[in-house]
Write a protein that binds this DNA or RNA. Sequence first.
DNA 1: CGCCGACGGATTGTCCGTCAATATTCCGCC
DNA 2: GGCGGAATATTGACGGACAATCCGTCGGCG
Lengths: 245, 245
Amino acid sequence: MDSVAPDKLEQEKGDQGLRVTPQPMRRQVEEGLRAAIIAGRFAPGQHLPDRLLCELFGASRSVVREAVRLLEAESLIVVLPNRGPFVAWLSSTEAAQIYEVRGVLEALAGEGFAIRATDAERAELRAVYERLAAAGEASDRTELLAIKRDFYAVLLRGCRNPMVARMLDQMLNRNSQLRATSLSEPGRLPHTVAEIRRVVQAIEHRDPEGAWEACRHHVKRAAAVAVRILREREERDGTPYGREA
Amino acid sequence: MDSVAPDKLEQEKGDQGLRVTPQPMRRQVEEGLRAAIIAGRFAPGQHLPDRLLCELFGASRSVVREAVRLLEAESLIVVLPNRGPFVAWLSSTEAAQIYEVRGVLEALAGEGFAIRATDAERAELRAVYERLAAAGEASDRTELLAIKRDFYAVLLRGCRNPMVARMLDQMLNRNSQLRATSLSEPGRLPHTVAEIRRVVQAIEHRDPEGAWEACRHHVKRAAAVAVRILREREERDGTPYGREA
DNA sequence: CGCCGACGGATTGTCCGTCAATATTCCGCC
DNA sequence: GGCGGAATATTGACGGACAATCCGTCGGCG
């Protein structure tokens, strides 16, 4: 059994370089489906027959099924035996657990950023924060979500730990629908801005412990709001997953 | 676009109950392949042509490819475009990053166990620890690895947080080969036992903070040993992945 | 009237054969 | 001996086919 090791091949994904060959079809389906779920274009709990996905993406069943398998591993899709794929949904307890994990990962990312990021990256983070602070209550949700997405993009890049980035990214994807609702909670925005400011300030002072605490604090607050909303919704209409189109 | 939610279906995996229907072939391939990689039956960096996997598991290409996709999402397999799947390998810096993530997750698990585990589970954990303490230097690696696997099984069950369990399980799988080498480091075992004892004691005292610190400390120590060994190995033979049969 | 069971449609799980695109190997040629 | 190109192997993707399973419906029966 030979174990020939590929020579100068990188397994990192960051170095696709100047590669011009198109992504394989599978990736396109995978990314499209992931984006659609994260954006809430499919309702949680919705059934996704592979025939539907086939004609939606214009791909064959093999490709669709492989993409579904990947998203299943990310817990964005749940595959029931002999029933097929469903869009994953969250109960309030699951959401609380996710926030718990997200808290420590985000703290780790903040700490790493404070230690290892470049000055340019610090400035970038500050700039994103300023955009958030400038966005008043008037801004719509999509604007706010975009800013927060950018914030995390900078944070995950600057923390210099692809593993943290991968895991935290999964967590953020997993509760992306929730973030939309918790961000739109009336009166929540000023608190969010203040919490993020603490993170940015700690990072600018190169204070890893401070960044750690600020991140954990922020996630803890966000979790409290999101879980409360989710629990209220569950009490109101009995089902843990939405039914909006 | 209807979004009919399946009624009392659970998406948790823990409740397969008394289900007697055989797992789909795909799961068998997936689990077999995962187990083989974790056990080190394939060398890191080894190429796994799907034809090989097909006749190895007696399955068709579709099944094999879907299983590979899942393991790709777990980072146990790396798929190079137009080259196919390879067994993932670790550089010393990647290993360090994994240990960093594993540290906070394990701390979170320990904390959760201290807070939420039942008395029976505490006793179980203590029992596993006693087995570890009893196993002298004489024991072979497979025995030690089995005990540690049991330890983590109890820990992940008792922490009452399936998300932490999933993530941490992935991390443990990812560096399973490393654990074998770091456990067999001469003189390391007594330290390991002492570190684990601190974890168990803190949990028995229902001291979440103590458990947190003890877990982080244990992982930090294990990381130091593993990364050092890996770095030495890289310096010695230049390649970050083994070539043993 | 309501429950139970059989039938039929729909969907998944799996396999197979085919074809194009790409990577690897090897061989002849200069 | 090095180089270029053909031959081969492997992946990426497609579509059809078939059995097994699940779901809803309909009809029979107590």
